[in-house]
């Protein structure tokens, strides 16, 4: 009897012990997230339908459930919305094109240097991303050596500049989010058993067929995670547009930032933020469903 009891308690200790234990572990973190993530989002939704108090100071608003804020905010900034999603998509596709072969080389072709190369992918992170973005601005700017060289070789015209353009903004975002793309790709490529690739070769598949039918499908979780980790921050980014862009490359992030700090129009900022968040969540949900990976959620 005692033995059975001991055995049972051992098993139960494993499958959970006291029923309250998970809640004790969860409570502090979840209370924190509820207070400083859910509550602010709810408050943001609340702010988004407010209107200025008649005769009040700048920055004073009252709740009037003015849902037209959303319509106005969207219509006034549909260009910036479109641009944000376009730039984010371009940066994601470019980052995937650059990062996939890079991750592949590290995971499958680098032998004993694997860990070292992996560290090198993450290392640039530690030189502040702002310093690196500004470095690009100076390298590609009028004072750098790249523009005069290209002009000397007549590759670009006298009037063409590499910074302050849409191309520079997209290139900057591609650069900044490259490690976010590379790491998940590496993680899923590294997990592939090399014998599956050999087996494919033994069955007379050539390199391209093996890649298309074996490697790529097995690395899909990495592709999904990497594209999400790049697309989401890129769509809300405004730093690259502010440093590498011009007034015609403003993204929705720039608008939210200036409605908050320069115009002090909180309802518009809130309506724009909320629209951005919902749009991204819808896109992400569709994307995860379509790609058939729910490992992330």
């Amino acid at each position: 009897m005692a033995l059975i009891h001991a055995a049972r308690s051992r098993v139960s200790a494993f499958s959970g012990g006291k029923a309250s234990m998970p809640y004790v572990l969860l409570a502090p973190g979840l209370i924190f997230l509820f207070t400083f993530f859910i509550l602010p989002i709810a408050n943001l939704a609340q702010t988004s339908t407010q209107t200025p108090i008649a005769g009040g100071d700048t920055g004073e608003y009252e709740q009037t459930f003015h849902f037209a804020n959303y319509v106005n905010a969207f219509l006034d900034n549909k260009e910036q919305f479109g641009r944000s999603f376009l730039y984010a998509t371009l940066a994601t596709v470019l980052a995937l094109a650059i990062a996939y072969p890079l991750a592949y080389a590290i995971a499958l072709k680098s032998g004993k240097f694997k860990n070292f190369l992996l560290v090198l992918v993450v290392a640039p992170f530690f030189t502040s991303f702002l310093l690196r973005t500004i470095a690009w601005k100076q390298i590609l700017g009028e004072g750098g050596f790249v523009v005069p060289t290209l002009r000397g070789l007549h590759i670009i015209g006298e009037q063409t500049s590499l910074t302050a353009s849409a191309v520079a903004v997209v290139a900057g975002m591609t650069y900044n989010f490259l490690p976010f793309m590379t790491l998940p790709l590496y993680a899923s490529l590294e997990r592939i058993d090399p014998r599956t690739l050999e087996a494919s070769g033994d069955l007379y598949a050539n390199g391209i067929t093996t890649f298309r039918k074996v490697t790529l499908p097995l690395s899909m979780p990495g592709v999904v995670a990497g594209t999400l980790l790049t697309f989401i921050p890129a769509a809300g980014d405004y730093v690259n547009a502010a440093i590498l862009g011009n007034p015609n490359t403003k993204m929705i992030g720039n608008v939210i930032d200036s409605s908050f700090f320069k115009i002090v129009d909180y309802p518009t900022a809130a309506a724009l933020s909320f629209t951005l968040m919902i749009a991204i969540l819808i896109l992400v949900t569709i994307y995860i469903r379509k790609s058939g990976t729910d490992e992330l959620v």
Binding site: L30, F37, L44, L228, G253, S273
Partner: peptide, 29 residues
Amino acid sequence: FKGRSSTNLLIFLPMATPEIVLGASLLSL
């Protein structure tokens, strides 16, 4: 435990929210 999948969702949401929304919403709170 009960609520495991909604906990997972709550963990995923902040990662799927752009920084500017996190920053702006917290400031307004």
